[in-house]
Design a binder for these strands. Structure first.
Length: 915
RNA sequence: GCCGAUGUGGUGAAAUGGUAAACACAGCGGACUUAAAAUCCGCUGGGCGGAAACGCCCUUGCCGGUUCGAGUCCGGCCAUCGGCACCA
């Protein structure tokens, strides 16, 4: 028997047919403002998928999960009168493309084109309602021209005192009024400007990955290895382009509040940005040289300035620049050895060896500003140059790391906080003593919030955690004027004291670093920058797009020298100027692609103003209405894109401060064995195979029926067969087969009104599916459609009009089948059939009256336990229902003759008799 | 270690604080068929009692609490998965 005959319905014939018709008539084209068929009175709905990287492996079943969800939403919104923007494109630059090209020897452009063609074919075979006229490809010169253009905006902007981006010309103008401007050299003026650009060069330590032959961003490192390829990472100083994302750290945290995103993703971003409040504290250190006594002020960042009295030593990062000066002659060799050892270690080794603390004494001492004690200065690799000031005050009594270090090197430990453990119970006299001490410091009113008194046992429980910073909150002891103060009060007081004495300042610190934005690769956007006399400048916008050179050999050089250096002609911008050789990272193109979709063919502007205002600014609060993608981008793409968007917003190019209003993460699809899908495990499911065997509609439906969208869930071919059978049942509501295997319109299908029971099933389905689609609860919507189909299957005569209505509800999920059956019905019942494309139809309204039954089943409980049921008229009053319940013999039996204490009546649901 | 998510039948899962397990998968039985596949109909959490109809008890990771009533709310534990990880 051929596989063709085994098919339960001829999806392999009608699916490609409808895909062709949709494409030919541009059924899913989204008109833009200004187009003849644009209807400005309609609200907009912008539904976005994270565009894929077109890999050589083609689509896997994880892709259609999110894409089907957005497709259903998009189709549903369209039927509900929205102008729907649902586009697709390609994130085609980047390391994987280039690695693959290097392996196969084919030019990245060739492989990319082939992969894009393959992906396109695969996506089209799934019947997604994309407006393909808006397709974007980050490697297209018409696209990356504007990626480069946005880079120029970053290059030519700075963040002003208002915390917003402004054109750099404003800074240049302002500078003229600054004191001493006239005396500055051109060089100085230029440097002052360059130091404030949002895109700047830096010679700091970067993450160099020899295996990839390029530097990578902090966000691209996983466990000390590169995210792509898993190669070791080294820290080394290199001249690189950076983007000043740290200037946006606070706004990137604050603006999360108003976004409709999963709380866990917001938290992930907040933790990555890593805001912590504390203080800078200054420690003086002095040393003698042949020129006399020298001094230097070491500044540390601490979140616990209240423990300053307990600071018994200091630790500097091994890379700290002042070391060469303060280290004593006796210790010089030890310090140099240690620095050398650290430098040769990769980040991975440093993390792996982190269990045991190491460090070296510098021989130098600093003065603790609060008690003038001389404390030794050490260096250790547990202090990082890149965070805070690269120096800490060590409080071993209250910091686990400092404690370990102090134990190992026999450094003094001094307790300065008496800990109030929330779990510790305090005896009455201790409570009184603490209360007494606190009262003296704070006055009577200050205590109540700080303690919990358990009402049952009258015992006192200690302080609440504050901010979740360090858990060792408590009461200051051995701390002079801070004694007796609870931690949060002590922090305030010491900070005020430091500020008054000019010894420190309250401050906020972030973990987030500036974004390392250049890569030593071929397959990326070249920078629109040239160098002359060691100085950079941008090329004019008129020279965009700046095309990469045509290179035969685009392999990495094996050194930090980028491969573009091989294009000797291209490199030479003029007789004296050379082009920037680095390229942008893959993230560049994905930072703004959603904007390009709004106006993908615009050659005058990165996005037309009217188009941007309508699709991004329209609605409340604007932006992309729904963004669906995987969690893996929680801190990379989603943070970078928000940053770029805010810069564009500040500069007046976009209308909303945030790009993505609502974000939903689809859960990972695991293999049939419950493991992550991977080639090596051999558990990868290829969507092409599923489409061939069961059809696109079955694949779409199964992906949505598996379980909640956000959830991680394993694949099951049996499950695909289940929804396939469901679709076949729908097919047979309308079609029947003769002995030759030919399908024709079912004779049971007639122009008759649906009976009451079928009408109810249909309207319940309209209602529930509409509500569930809004909630993205597709699995429950599908089960409701199954219930409805089962009801229709049980009926001898199939009411055609009702079935057409059902097809409208089904159409966002299984568009091919719905379209085909509607067309089949039209042949015999032209008046009953829906429009040629169901997506042009209006989503049906449900009739509330059709949902109401004459009778409902009421549950009778005695003391909360189910004892009896009865059908009562819907109109029955509470009193009537109660009487029926109390009259029930079973209820009486379980009441055991006891008097009724209370009766709870929930109309339409239950009666609970309490005795 | 810190942060977050999730724990419900044999499986995927469903349940505005109100009949736990809808809808599927798998399994079992039946109809159709020479037979099988497909299709259609029925049963399907566990225990106890009963010939049966049916009835009772238990059951949403574990322990407690709030409530007339808890899978759902609160407190505490345990397990699995994900993220961060010397961030001072």
């Amino acid at each position: 028997m051929s596989s063709e005959q085994r098919k339960a319905f001829p999806f392999s014939e009608f699916e490609p047919k409808w895909q062709g018709e949709w494409e030919a008539s541009k059924a899913y084209r989204a008109p833009n403002p200004g187009d003849a068929d644009f209807d400005a009175s309609k609200p907009k709905y912008f539904v976005l998928d994270m565009f894929p990287y077109p890999s050589g492996n083609g689509l896997h079943v994880g892709h259609p999960e999110g894409y089907t969800a957005t497709d259903i939403i998009g189709r549903f919104k369209k039927m509900n009168g929205f102008n729907v923007l649902h586009p697709m494109g390609w994130d085609a630059f980047g390391l994987p493309a280039e690695q693959y090209a290097i392996k196969t020897g084919t030019h990245p452009r060739v492989t990319t084109e082939a992969n894009v063609a393959n992906f396109t074919k695969q996506l089209k075979s799934l019947g997604f309602a994309y407006d393909w006229d808006r397709e974007v490809n980050t490697t297209d010169p018409g696209y990356f021209k504007w990626t480069q253009w946005i880079f120029l905006k970053l290059y030519n902007s700075y963040v002003g005192d208002d915390g917003k981006a402004h054109p750099i010309s404003e800074l240049k103008e302002k500078m003229k009024s600054w004191l001493g401007y006239d005396q500055w050299s051109e060089e100085t003026r230029r440097k002052l400007v360059d130091d404030r650009r949002l895109a700047y060069t830096s010679n700091a330590l970067v993450n160099w990955c020899p295996g990839l032959g390029t530097v990578v961003a902090n966000e691209e490192i996983v466990d000390g290895k590169s995210e792509v390829g898993g190669f070791p990472i080294e820290r080394r100083p290199m001249l690189q382009w950076m983007l000043r994302i740290t200037k946006y750290a606070q706004r990137l945290i604050d603006d999360l509040d108003d976004l409709d995103w999963p709380e866990s993703i917001k938290l992930l971003q907040k933790n990555w940005i890593g805001r912590s409040e504390g203080a800078h504290v200054q420690f003086e250190t002095e040393w003698s040289t042949s020129d006399g006594l020298m001094s230097y002020t070491l500044t540390v960042f601490t979140t616990r300035p209240d423990t300053l009295f307990g600071a018994t030593y200091m630790v500097l990062a091994p890379e700290h620049p002042v070391l060469s000066q303060i280290t004593t002659t006796e210790q010089r060799e030890a310090v140099l050895d240690y620095q050398k050892a650290i430098a040769s270690k990769s980040d991975l080794e440093r993390t792996e060896l982190a269990k045991e603390k190491t460090g070296v004494f510098t021989g130098a001492y600093a003065t603790n500003p609060v008690n003038n004690e001389q404390i030794p200065i050490w260096i250790a690799d547990y202090v990082l140059m890149g965070y805070g000031t690269g120096a800490i005050m060590a409080v071993p009594a209250h910091d686990e790391r400092d404690f370990e270090f102090a134990k190992k090197f026999n450094l003094p430990i001094k307790q300065v906080v008496m800990r109030l453990d929330p779990k510790t119970q305090w005896s009455e006299d201790v409570r009184l003593a603490v209360n007494d001490a606190l009262s003296k410091q704070l006055g009577e009113g200050g205590l109540l919030e700080d303690f919990h008194v358990n009402e049952e046992n009258s015992k006192v429980y200690g302080f609440q955690m504050l901010d979740g910073a360090m858990s060792e909150s408590g009461i200051a002891v051995n701390s002079g004027f801070l004694d007796g103060l609870p931690t949060f009060e002590a922090k305030k007081k010491i900070t005020a004291w430091l500020e008054e004495k000019g010894l420190g300042k309250g401050t906020t610190n972030f973990k987030l670093r500036d974004w390392l934005f250049s890569r030593q690769r071929y397959w990326g956007e070249p920078f629109p920058i040239v160098w002359e006399n060691g100085q950079h400048r941008c090329i004019p916008e008129s020279e965009l797009p700046l095309m990469p050179p045509t290179l035969e050999d685009f392999k990495p050089t094996g050194t930090p020298e980028p491969p573009l250096s091989k294009a000797t002609e291209w490199v030479q911008y003029s007789a004296t100027a050379k082009r920037e050789l680095n390229t942008m990272p893959q993230w560049a193109g994905s930072c703004w692609y959603y904007l390009r979709y709004c106006d993908a063919r615009n050659s005058e502007r990165f996005v037309g103003e009217a188009a941007e205002k309508y699709w991004m600014g329209g609605g409340k609060p604007g932006g992309v209405d729904l963004y669906v993608g995987g969690t893996e981008h929680a801190v990379l793409h989603l943070l970078y894109a928000r940053f770029w968007h805010k810069v564009l917003f500040d500069l007046g190019y976009v209308s909303t401060p945030e790009p993505f209003q609502r974000l939903v993460n689809q859960g990972l699809i695991l293999g049939e064995d419950g493991q992550k899908m991977s080639k090596s495990r051999g558990n990868v499911v290829n969507p092409d195979d599923v489409v061939r065997e069961y059809g696109a509609d079955a694949l779409r439906l199964y992906e949505m029926f598996m379980g909640p969208l956000e959830q991680v869930k394993p694949w099951s071919m049996k499950g695909v067969e289940g929804v396939y059978r469901f679709l076949a049942r729908v097919w047979r509501l309308v079609m029947e087969v003769d002995e030759e295997g030919t399908w024709s319109l079912s004779k049971a299908l007639q122009d008759v009104p649906a009976n009451k029971q079928l009408t109810k099933a249909l309207h319940e389905t309209i209602k529930k599916c509409g509500e569930d689609i809004e909630k993205l609860s597709f699995n429950t919507a599908i089960s409701q459609m199954m219930v409805c189909t089962n009801a229709f299957t049980g009926a001898d005569v199939k009411p055609a009009a009702a079935i057409v209505t059902f097809l409208k509800v089904l159409s966002p999920f299984a568009p091919h089948l719905a379209e085909e059956l509607n067309a089949q019905i039209r042949v015999k019942f032209p008046a009953l059939a829906a429009k040629r494309f169901l997506s042009d139809e209006t989503w049906p309204a449900y009739d509330p009256a059709a949902l109401i039954e004459d009778e409902v089943e009421i549950v009778f409980q005695v003391n909360g336990k189910l004892r009896d049921k009865a059908r009562v008229p819907v109109a029955a009053t509470k009193e009537e229902i109660e009487q029926i319940a109390l009259a029930s013999p079973r209820v009486q039996e379980f009441m055991e003759g006891k008097p009724v204490k209370k009766v709870i009546v929930v109309p339409g649901k239950l009666v609970n008799v309490v005795v």
